[in-house]
Simulated scan of single mutants.
Amino acid sequence: MKRSRFTEEQIIAMIKEQEAGMATAEVCRKHGVSSASFYKYKAKYGGMDVSDARKLKALEDENAKLKKLLAEQMLDNAILKDVAAKKW
C-alpha cells in the first residue's frame, strides 16, 4: 500500500482546521492535497485524537503481521499435506 506524504498528526490537524470553519477547498489548497484525499482522510481519522491515530496504526501493523504469519502457516500445512498424500 502506498504511504501517505502526511503523518497522522498532520492529517488530524487538517481535519481540525476544516471542522473549525475553514472551507474544505481552502484547506486542501493550503496543504496541497486533493479534496478526494481529504475526504478519505476524514473518513478514516475523523473524530480521532493523535493518540487514537497512533493506536490505530499500531493495531493495523500488528494485524498485518498476524495475517502474514497465518498465510505462511497455511502454506506450510498445504505443502506438508501434499507431501504426505504422495504414494511412495
Rank of each mutant, 00 (worst) to 15 (best):
residue 74 M to H: 10
residue 50 V to W: 02
residue 64 A to I: 10
residue 10 Q to A: 15
residue 14 M to K: 08
residue 23 A to K: 14
residue 35 S to F: 02
residue 43 A to R: 15
residue 47 G to I: 06
residue 30 K to R: 14
residue 38 F to N: 02
residue 65 K to D: 03
residue 31 H to T: 07
residue 78 A to S: 07
residue 16 K to Y: 05
residue 86 K to R: 12
residue 88 W to S: 13
residue 22 M to H: 03
residue 52 D to W: 01
residue 36 A to M: 14
residue 36 A to S: 15
residue 80 L to S: 09
residue 43 A to Q: 12
residue 19 E to N: 13
residue 71 A to I: 04
residue 76 D to E: 10
residue 87 K to P: 00
residue 10 Q to R: 15
residue 81 K to E: 08
residue 38 F to D: 00
residue 80 L to H: 04
residue 81 K to S: 08
residue 7 T to P: 03
residue 16 K to I: 14
residue 49 D to W: 11
residue 21 G to F: 05
residue 75 L to T: 14
residue 5 R to T: 07
residue 41 Y to I: 04
residue 47 G to L: 05
residue 81 K to I: 08
residue 44 K to C: 00
residue 60 E to V: 08
residue 54 R to K: 13
residue 23 A to L: 09
residue 1 M to R: 04
residue 26 E to A: 12
residue 28 C to F: 06
residue 23 A to T: 05
residue 3 R to Y: 04
residue 73 Q to C: 08
residue 60 E to A: 13
residue 87 K to W: 01
residue 37 S to W: 09
residue 62 E to H: 13
residue 35 S to G: 05
residue 40 K to T: 10
residue 16 K to N: 12
residue 56 L to I: 03
residue 81 K to Y: 03
residue 7 T to R: 13
residue 32 G to Q: 02
residue 33 V to W: 01
residue 12 I to V: 14
residue 54 R to T: 09
residue 54 R to H: 06
residue 83 V to N: 01
residue 32 G to W: 04
residue 19 E to I: 12
residue 4 S to V: 10
residue 75 L to S: 11
residue 56 L to S: 03
residue 69 L to T: 04
residue 47 G to R: 05
residue 74 M to W: 03
residue 33 V to F: 00
residue 21 G to R: 08
residue 10 Q to L: 10
residue 34 S to P: 08
residue 17 E to L: 14
residue 86 K to F: 00
residue 36 A to D: 10
residue 76 D to Q: 13
residue 3 R to H: 09
residue 88 W to D: 11
residue 43 A to H: 09
residue 3 R to G: 07
residue 35 S to L: 11
residue 60 E to L: 09
residue 73 Q to M: 10
residue 20 A to L: 11
residue 73 Q to E: 11
residue 63 N to F: 09
residue 11 I to Q: 06
residue 29 R to N: 05
residue 88 W to R: 15
residue 25 A to E: 07
residue 50 V to A: 07
residue 49 D to Y: 09
residue 75 L to A: 14
residue 8 E to R: 14
residue 42 K to Y: 02
residue 55 K to F: 03
residue 8 E to W: 06
residue 16 K to R: 15
residue 63 N to K: 15
residue 42 K to L: 04
residue 27 V to M: 02
